[in-house]
Nucleic acid binder design. Sequence first.
RNA 1: GGCCCCGUCGUCUAGCGGCCUAGGACUCUGGCUUCUCAAGCCAGCUACGAGGGUUCGAAUCCCUUCGGGGCUACCA
Length: 487
Amino acid sequence: MTAGKKVKVRFAPSPTGDLHVGNIRTALFDWAFARHTGGTFLFRIEDTDTTRVTPEYIQAAIDTLKWLGLNWDEGPEVGGPNGPYLQSQRLDIYATWAQKFLDQGDAYHCYCSPEELEAVREAQRAANVAPGYNGHCRDLTADQIAAYKAQGREAVVRMRMPDGTTTFTDAIRGEVTFDHKFVPDFVLVRADGSPLYTLAVAVDDILMEVTHVLRGEDLLSSTPRQIRVYQAMGVKPEDYPTFAHLPFVMGQDNAKLSKRNGEVSIAWYREQGYLPEAICNYLALLGWSPGDDRENVTMQELTELFTVEKVHSSPARFDMKKLEAINGDKIRALTLDDFLTWTLPFLTKAGIITGTDAEVALVKKALPIIQERIVKLDETPALLKFLFVKEFAVDADAVSKITDDASKDILKRSLKELEALTTWDHASIEATLRAALIEDMGLKPRIAFTALRIATTGSTISPPLFESMELLGQSACISRISAALSL
RNA sequence: GGCCCCGUCGUCUAGCGGCCUAGGACUCUGGCUUCUCAAGCCAGCUACGAGGGUUCGAAUCCCUUCGGGGCUACCA
């Protein structure tokens, strides 16, 4: 199938909500496959279900893909030779093909009402036979049709599924066969004239010259229906796209990932401070591996290493802990400038800074000491807050730890030493404090520095103490310690 | 129920008949380091769903079984 042709892969979500982890994993594989093969990545919006798809969700899907860096060659905003790329703008195309199928006898009008169809299914379930359309309207006579029309019945367009089987080779699962006995005649066009997924997806994949369909395994059993449409379109088997059905991403409870068993919206991950590259790296490892022990890969490396042959056929469980670990790795690998760029929005959103040049400069100086201690960007405000607060106050739960006499002694001595210090850098601060508190007073470092940490940063947890004090500045340190003494 | 897909440590995976007393990563536990928190380093725990074959030899091939999942819409 499609051998020799230039690869074209499509990602075609139906935006009935925010794109979720599963969608993104599919998009990522589509993208990686296209880039690996030097092919085209096509992005199409399947918005034929107008009751569930909204313009907001469509825009959100576009933004999400952009944010992740999954750039497309054909699709919304960038256009392309086979547009439009929103199915809602291609209705006339589907109508034309549906009519052709009707004319050819591949499809027929079905006048059964939803209620009648449901009754049939109910009976089938009761009789323990496979539920599905019973072919009631397959061979209606002209009189029967006239009678239905006279009753004012609306018709759907239904595809005739001939006896036999459909066999295709899935690039991930191998040869798969479906007996048409279990693939009932299916609806192509609703009674209101709007197309269904089964029609639109098949028509578009052919018209847009898609060579590879990598999609979720939930669509595996709909493949024979797509192939049936190709046949009716007159497409030769060697021109069918190659199918590859990706395994699911499951939640912790082994059910398809959903809001109930894990956070699924990419928007949520973005707000939490996950890096797009971390999300992509982690998702790439769900159902795929480079084949060796490599795990940390850049987007560039992913496109070099990705092949469908290495994709699994078994589902994978989503593990937030592993994502966090990878995110931490990616954060630590960031250059200072990139780290700054990623961090600033979190600090401004938290109200820690407003964005002045002085603030940004201080943040930049402080970032190196927190880079290896955060896993997500949203941890940054809490760690750097002490540098920017206008009204400094010691955390309520830490106050009691520095009001005892021993702590007061530590703070008093520290104050004296720091006031006398003429060179204000972390090495000098540390040398002075160690000499006075550890060597002279004989205190344990842990005890001595905890008291100072609370007094200067307001918390029992902070970036390294001496670096923090350097950044804070001599006068601020002195005034905070003085204030702590009168608590 | 029927059809289809899937089954290696808790999780993601390596493995494609001998290199496997099953390797790596995350998690977890213990230790080292240490000014807190991290990071880093070291160690440990834990897996081929089960049962039959085939073979000198099976995690790897075949069959059965059990288990999980998907589909079964005028959703996608």
